[in-house]
């Protein structure tokens, strides 16, 4: 069973809820697919049990021993990625888009395309189980390929088929689709704002397309009751179950600052609502 937590826009509380649910579910495999802001693991002290390079792209590389400094590569590169410094040609890897034109144009076979590591991928052992995560290189972009890798890694370490909770990628692009496809259920965390509702609609249409059981949770629902009602109406019209309405609670900020899951705050109103939500969700997905 794979449950993916989604949001559309950033900042709706997706990670807070993903963390709380994985606490409540106890024996789970965690996957952090929010590779641009991988905050899931900040909650846990852990030890990496596996680390691998993730090759996300290819970049041009100039072999100085073969380069005759004819300059054709610099001339034809449309990305201004080749420059000359101290009489040596070199590739600025931030500018290189990996098209490979220079490797074709070089008559001296001095340029080749080489794998570029764009992230480290880890399996991290935490007190309460395992977490599959990535740390991207600066300036790298997350891709569907990286998400696919993270989920595959989790599967390798989850032979007993435990519940997997995925902190999904934000947005509605390729990484999100890669976090949804093949999972069994999706929980969309939304907040009562105009952009929250718009994003909910977009993410829901993706889930619907991939025929995934979809649930909605309205986080901080009481900061704008009017829009919260609009969200409920949208959910009702589309037969989506709202499994939770979580009140605004300053304890959530405190829990983030102390890096303690909100479930450890017994008196917190948000915690209480999340616990109720989990009971409902559990009965629906089992």
């Amino acid at each position: 069973m794979e449950l993916v937590i989604l949001s559309g826009k950033g900042g709706t509380g997706k990670t807070t809820i993903a963390t709380a649910l994985s606490e409540l579910a106890k024996d789970v495999m965690r996957v952090d697919c929010d590779v641009d802001a991988p905050n899931f693991y900040l909650y846990y002290q852990g030890q990496d049990v596996e680390r691998k390079d993730f090759i996300g792209s290819k970049k041009a590389f100039i072999d100085k021993s073969k380069c005759v400094k004819c300059g054709i590569c610099k001339e034809i590169c449309r990305f201004d990625a080749i420059d000359i410094k101290k009489d040596q040609y070199f590739v600025d890897s931030f500018s290189c888009e990996g098209c490979g034109l220079c490797t074709i144009a070089c008559n001296f076979k001095a340029i080749s395309m080489q794998d570029e590591k764009t992230a480290d991928v880890y399996i991290t052992k935490i007190e309460k189980g395992l977490l599959s995560r990535a740390q991207m290189e600066i300036g790298a972009d997350g891709s569907g390929k990286l998400i696919t890798e993270l989920r595959e890694n989790a599967k390798r370490y989850n032979k007993e088929n435990k519940l997997t909770i995925i902190d999904g990628s934000p947005g509605i692009g390729c990484p999100v689709i890669s976090s949804i496809t093949g999972s069994n259920a999706a929980l969309i965390v939304t907040e009562p704002s105009k952009s929250g509702l718009e994003d909910l609609k977009r993410v829901y249409s993706l889930c619907k397309h991939f025929k995934i059981m979809t649930f909605v949770c309205i986080n901080k629902y009481d900061i704008n009751i009017e829009v919260a009602n609009d969200i409920e109406e949208f959910a009702n019209n589309n037969n989506i179950t709202i499994v939770g309405k979580i009140p605004f609670d300053e304890k959530v900020m405190e829990s983030i600052n102390n890096l303690k899951p909100i479930t450890e705050y017994e008196e917190s109103r948000a915690n209480k609502a999340i616990r109720e939500m989990w009971e409902i969700l559990k009965s629906k997905i089992n």
């Binding site: 972009d141 891709s143 390729c174 689709i177 993706l206």
Partner: peptide
């Protein structure tokens, strides 16, 4: 066709 993956 299904939804576009934004070419990524």
């Amino acid at each position: 066709a299904g939804p576009s993956h934004h070419g990524m």
